[in-house]
Simulated scan of single mutants.
Amino acid sequence: MPIVRTLLSNRFATATRDRARRTAGRALHRGWKWLQDAGAVTNRNPGPYRFGELGDGTKLAFPLGTVFNEQWVTIGPFSIIGERVTISAGFLPGLDLGPEPIVRIGGGCVIGRGSHIVGHQSIVLGDDVWTGPDVYITDQAHEYRDTELPIGKQWPRNEPVEIGAGSWIGTGAVILPGARIGRNVVVAANSVVSGEVPDHAVVAGAPARVVRRWDAAEGWQPPIRHDAPRPLPDGVTAEQLRALVGWDLRIPGEDDGSAADEQVAGER
């Protein structure tokens, strides 16, 4: 009997510990979710940050990365900035960087978690630029021509960076000073980009080179191997599309379309 009581006692203690652990886990995750919601930065809830512009519907996820001199950073509407993304302007916090923005991020952009956008002269991302996680974009590099002076102490070199609207920057890519990336460009994961990239191109490698381009006469060269995705069916309403995507795709001030949908439904 003592053995039975011991076994029952051990089982009861184990069950109690498991219940306590589950309860604590649920409470921890609920608390973290609350912190994420409360700590997210928007134009209605900017927290301690004073961005030069923060568009309607844009959100910087909590926890943020390093953010300073945000007065010289503008972000358009309906952009999503992932967790732990660093966005900075200038060398150090508290600098006067002049009348113009240093970092400009367009509307509808998505910046993957852990990415860095480090601007000193000019970084411009057009509308609908999406990146994977851990992307690094900078307009400054250290000089190294002086063989006697440590590289970190040599005066840096700035060159503006521009990424055209609709481009996709893959995970771990590095965009170097002077890069001019065209519209609707794909930058493959872990690529290192400098110099000019034409519109509608795919670049890959370190240093990155063009591996596919779109030609008005011949289409994509070399041809894309997989089939194109099926288009949306005819008659899909704006509300159905929003429900499918899961986002609010309306621009600020736009009617939600429900009245028009109801009118169409009545006409049918």
Rank of each mutant, 00 (worst) to 15 (best):
P2C: 06
S9Y: 09
N10Q: 14
F12K: 13
T14W: 09
A15Q: 07
R17P: 04
R19W: 12
G25F: 08
A27Q: 11
R30S: 11
G39F: 03
N43V: 03
N45A: 15
R50H: 15
F51K: 01
E53F: 12
G55L: 07
D56I: 06
L60W: 00
P63H: 06
P63K: 03
P63W: 00
P63V: 04
G65K: 09
V67D: 01
F68M: 01
F68K: 00
V73Y: 04
V73R: 06
T74N: 06
I75T: 10
F78S: 15
F78Q: 14
E83D: 10
R84W: 08
T86F: 08
G90I: 00
P93L: 07
I102Y: 07
G107C: 08
G108V: 11
C109N: 07
V110Y: 13
V110A: 14
I111D: 05
G112D: 06
G112T: 00
G112A: 12
S115E: 02
H116G: 05
H116F: 14
V118L: 15
G119W: 00
I123W: 02
I123T: 03
V124L: 11
V129C: 09
G132Q: 13
I137Q: 03
D139H: 03
Q140M: 14
E143A: 15
Y144K: 02
Y144W: 03
R145W: 09
T147R: 08
E148G: 13
L149R: 15
L149W: 06
L149V: 04
L149S: 08
P150K: 03
I151Q: 07
G152T: 09
Q154F: 05
W155V: 12
R157F: 01
N158G: 04
P160D: 02
P160K: 09
G166Q: 03
S167I: 10
T171K: 09
T171P: 03
I175N: 08
G178M: 02
V185A: 11
N190V: 07
N190P: 04
S191D: 08
S191L: 09
V193K: 05
G195Y: 02
P198G: 00
D199V: 02
H200N: 14
A206S: 15
R209Q: 12
V210L: 05
R212A: 02
R212F: 06
R213G: 07
R213W: 04
W214L: 07
D215I: 05
A216I: 04
W220Q: 04
H226Q: 14
A228C: 06
L232I: 09
D234I: 01
Q240I: 05
W247N: 07
D248K: 11
I251A: 09
G253P: 11
G253S: 05
E254K: 00
E262F: 05
E262R: 15
E262T: 03
V264L: 15
